[in-house]
Amino acid sequence: MKNIIKVFLTSFFIASLISCSNNEESTVVNKSKVDLAKKNVAIQNFRKALIKMSDNRNVLISKTGFDNPVMEKESQDIIYLSAKELLLANGMNENEIFTKCNNNPKAVIGLAYTILAQNNQSTNISNQ
């Protein structure tokens, strides 16, 4: 039992070290592949999709036991394509997206959120 605990603690320590060493890795970006104009369009499209999802919130977002509004499939469908477009415009290819996101639409959307946050641009967006 002691040995198992030792092994667990050692692995936890190693895992923590690696997690920390990966702090600087944000999203997969190949700068040479990034077309800035295309990327800006993709960012705006993703924002518009997020606004549309929010406008449809009452019918598209379900709530779990403690009133946590969890993004469901209908909401994903609204923003998934624009999220993927943003990842492609940010220099990733289809294979990289598939590998990094493990074929999980929520992971694709999650990565797009991260890219969006890293590219703060004040732009007026209409709800249309």
Partner: peptide, 16 residues
């Protein structure tokens, strides 16, 4: 304006 809160649960332990 409107304000909304959503959780994107990518995997257990991995939440936005």
């Amino acid at each position: 304006y409107t304000v909304t809160y959503t959780e994107n649960v990518i995997a257990p332990g991995n939440v936005q």
